[in-house]
Design a protein around this nucleic acid. Structure first.
Lengths: 326, 326
DNA sequence: CCACTGAGTGAATACGTATTCATACGAGGG
DNA sequence: CCCTCGTATGAATACGTATTCACTCAGTGG
């Protein structure tokens, strides 16, 4: 491995000068600057990141925590987050939650040398806050809260549930099915809460079903087998909405004539023509990840201080073909 | 920051002993072992990764290069790769290619301190090999080659094209449309080549259209506007196949009666009921990413030696509703 | 001509850990 | 009882870089 000492020797200067060329080029005389740069070129020298971060205490790394990327919502988030970080010159260390042992991913919080931590969509995140606090690394939750103490940027999930309730009321349903996903996901809890509260007065019957995408089929089938089956389905997540569409197609239902379906999240997929899933989501012009990232980098630069507090964005309705016949 | 020296002081031992407790616990006496472990607990000590990797010359990092994660194929790849790496105790550094300046992501190859590099689906990858070589870090291409010199594990793209040709011949098409994607993607070139070679004898008319997913609409529309429009469409990628389905739906075509559609890649999405896109892909029991990762870690452990050479896996046909009426 | 300034540079040091080398000590064989 | 050997530990060193401190030297003002 070629070190800054090698470069110094070749250029006939001290190692300190090489370091200055890299970090404070304005502090070194033009002729020596050129000499050193030439030596760097010639030796194809690259500074050792470990040594650099050891002394400067800056790693240039952002740690990203999120759920499985085969879930399009998660992938979309990760993509935006990484692109944002890369653009600002950070390297991204990605940690993906294993659904079988969701807590284990948080160990990485304590081992990482990242300068900032971005918490994305995760199944379980409650305990993460403890880890984050003891790590002392600036962090932010994006898209869903980490409980009371998490600094969050994201959709107001309670409002989303409420909005879903208000919107589907216009469809005059008799029975509404709530397709809920993992009940330990705080985000989904909040959505359901908002939904139920807003539905309370209407007196409409509500049926709820929860579970992972993998094992939701059976309970959902049971729900549809009831005599008084839902004529509107609200999915806590677009993915569950898509699952519902898939199921309904298979079982011979017409959407939205027999059963209307509304998702939450307004993922990219939902807007595609072949799906055209109605959904509740953030306004189109709102880039949540960028917002969160700006806050996070501000926290890093201010040494963990400032820019705290959460931002809850009000969602809007995207009406598409699964709730409306044209 | 609490260091191993602090732990040593508290435990009444030397720093060297603390290090031994972490790395060679069998070399330290039971009573001292306990003392040190207790001190570690008490101080909530975590070894500094930078210092550790500076001296051990092992970072425990795998660098992952791939295309945008909003493309489901890419996301699926990234997910598998990360899960594999995490399971083996590696931390994953992810680098996503910006479509606007696809080459720029390769700079990271020279700056990274990763122990191994996994090259996934990328738009352009030809020049990457040069970077990889000068970096001296073990690397592997997964899913598509990096030219002659890349070590690759993946689907035999040429064979996939050929298989696509053989399969659609059974549909007895008059005109076949090839929906090709970015022409600089080597993977897609190979698929097309295999396809054309196998079609040559049949004398069937072939129409080809290329471009990014964003700007494929116009040329595709033009293709469908021709008098002799395709009755079978082969998409170089499932994503393009899905685009085609979306388009055909919009324009009033019946699939597969009016136009049949075949994708390549057999992505997860394609198997969903609402799409049911026929596709060419790897056998179900073949986990390409795991295979690639095994090879990569072998190369890392053998210090860059051994386990070279490529593995081209033969694809199979997944026949679904976009090519077959039941 | 001298004191002073400021720019440019090198020597030395620090960062936190792994490892080598040396040392102390207890056990076992003669 | 002495020598040897093996085990357990500490002191010292190395990794590659950033930064502090001290030094030189040319230029300036008195």
């Amino acid at each position: 491995m070629v070190s800054s000492v090698d470069v110094a020797k070749l250029a006939g200067v001290s190692q300190a000068t090489v370091s200055r060329v890299l970090n404070n080029p304005e502090k070194v005389n033009a002729p020596t600057l050129e000499k050193v740069k030439a030596a760097i070129q010639q030796l194809n020298y690259r500074p050792n990141a470990a040594a650099r971060s050891l002394i400067s205490r800056k790693s240039g790394i952002i740690a990203l925590f999120c759920g499985q990327l085969d879930e399009p919502d998660n992938a979309e988030f990760a993509n935006k987050a990484v692109m944002n970080a890369q653009q600002k010159g950070y390297t991204v260390e990605i940690h993906i939650q294993n659904p079988d042992k969701p807590e284990s991913v948080f160990d990485a919080i304590l081992d990482t040398q990242a300068e900032g931590i971005m918490m994305g969509p995760l199944i379980i995140k409650g305990t993460a806050v403890e880890y984050l606090k003891t790590s002392g690394i600036p962090y932010i939750f994006c898209g869903s809260g980490g409980g009371q103490e998490g600094i969050t940027v994201g959709m107001d999930n309670h409002a989303a549930g409420k909005l879903a309730a208000e919107y589907i009321s216009s469809l005059e349903p008799e029975t509404v099915g709530w397709l809920g996903g993992d009940p330990s996901d705080l985000r989904l809890q909040e959505r359901y809460q908002g939904f139920v509260e807003a539905m309370k007065e209407s007196g409409v019957r509500i049926v709820k079903v929860t579970g992972d995408l993998e094992d939701i089929e059976l309970p959902f089938t049971a729900m549809m087998a009831q005599k008084q089956r839902p004529d509107v389905i609200v999915a806590a997540t677009d993915s569950f909405g898509i699952f519902a569409l898939d199921f309904l197609y298979d079982y011979g239902y017409a959407v939205p004539e027999d059963v209307a379906v509304l998702g939450i999240g307004n993922s990219r997929q939902s807007a595609m023509n072949y799906l055209s899933l109605s959904s509740i989501g953030l306004p189109d012009d709102m880039d949540m990840v960028a917002e969160a990232f700006d806050r996070l980098s501000a926290m890093i630069e201010n040494n963990g201080q400032g820019s705290r507090g959460s931002a809850d964005v009000n969602p809007v309705v995207y009406e598409r073909r699964t709730t409306k016949t044209y």
